[in-house]
């Protein structure tokens, strides 16, 4: 009887100490090795996931799989059965959403602490998330949201994005000088200044890889924010679909801007994103 009881105790410890079932999301995109400084994952913080789900499925052909409690809190977006992003239900003060890029960090706790000391707000302290890794959520001193991550199985290879997935993220900053100092201090970037047309453009680089872009926010009275770019085959077709499914168009394709290869929209929940034809 005693042996049986101790077996039960041992089993209870084993079961209890195992991580809960969680979506094998990032383990599917991980590869050996890390690329610190790059945006390696994307999460849509959405106050209205049902509307967002319909939009991204219709415009980009993504499929959506629910996870989490009661299947109502967390969703995985997939394209051609490969995970491209997560969507999480967030409560928001203005009932609108935002894409949050996860930047690969060698030490999430240290980088988060450094960010806080430089005036950032830590929305979620570093925590180990099952099947994903160590993650924190941060609001930079100008209000832009981002995440720091150390993926459990390594970062995705820094290859060119496939169609209907993310190319990268760009910071639209109201104070580029302050933003440059902030992100360089916490993630140890090298800076390269460029001219994109008439626009001063900052590229954050690390280990000879382009990691992030930044320009002066071209929209008045809007706080600093990150803008994700999704690679599309035909920007006009993608824009027509987006409009049909409730997007607000911020910038129509124009020959003056990259030969009409870029459009900028707000999805139906208010999250900004860019559609770009990109064929290097």
């Amino acid at each position: 009887m005693k042996k049986l009881l101790w077996s039960l105790v041992f089993s209870a410890i084993l079961v209890s100490c195992s991580p809960s079932a969680a979506p094998p999301v990032l383990t599917e995109v991980s590869t050996p090795g890390y690329h610190p400084g790059r945006v390696v994952w994307y999460t849509l913080a959405s106050p209205n996931p049902e509307v967002a789900k319909n939009f991204y499925e219709s415009v980009f052909g993504w499929t959506t799989t629910p996870y989490g409690d009661n299947n109502r809190e967390l969703w995985v977006f997939q394209k051609d059965q490969k995970p491209v992003a997560l969507m999480a239900r967030y409560k928001s003060d203005n009932n609108s959403g935002e894409w949050i890029g996860s930047i690969s960090a060698e030490d999430v706790e240290q980088a988060s602490s450094e960010a806080k000391s430089l005036g950032a707000t830590i929305l979620a302290k570093p925590v180990a998330v099952a099947n994903q890794g160590m993650i924190s959520y941060v609001q930079d001193p100008q209000g832009a949201h981002f995440s720091l991550i150390r993926m459990a199985g390594g970062d995705p290879e820094p290859n060119l994005a496939s169609l209907d997935s993310f190319l990268g993220m760009e910071l639209w900053s109201n104070d580029t000088e302050q933003s440059q100092k902030f992100y360089t201090d916490i993630l140890d970037y090298e800076i390269e200044m460029r001219q994109e047309g008439d626009v001063d453009y900052t590229v954050f680089k690390k280990n000879n890889l382009n990691c992030l872009g930044m320009l002066q926010n071209p929209v008045e009275n809007v706080r600093s924010h990150w803008l994700p770019y999704i690679r599309v085959a035909d920007v006009n077709a993608a824009l027509a679909k987006a409009r049909e499914h409730g997007a607000t168009v911020l910038l129509e394709p124009s020959f003056d801007i990259r030969n009409g290869s870029v459009a900028i929209i707000l999805d139906p929940t208010g999250a900004p994103l860019a559609l770009q034809v990109y064929n290097p």
Partner: peptide, 24 residues
């Protein structure tokens, strides 16, 4: 003992934030 695993299933669920930069 589940607490000893110190693992969470989701990353952002339940968080509040100010919302998107453009509002609705």
């Amino acid at each position: 003992l589940p607490a000893c695993a110190n693992m969470h299933v989701t990353g952002g669920v339940g968080l509040n934030f100010s919302g998107g930069p453009y509002g609705m």
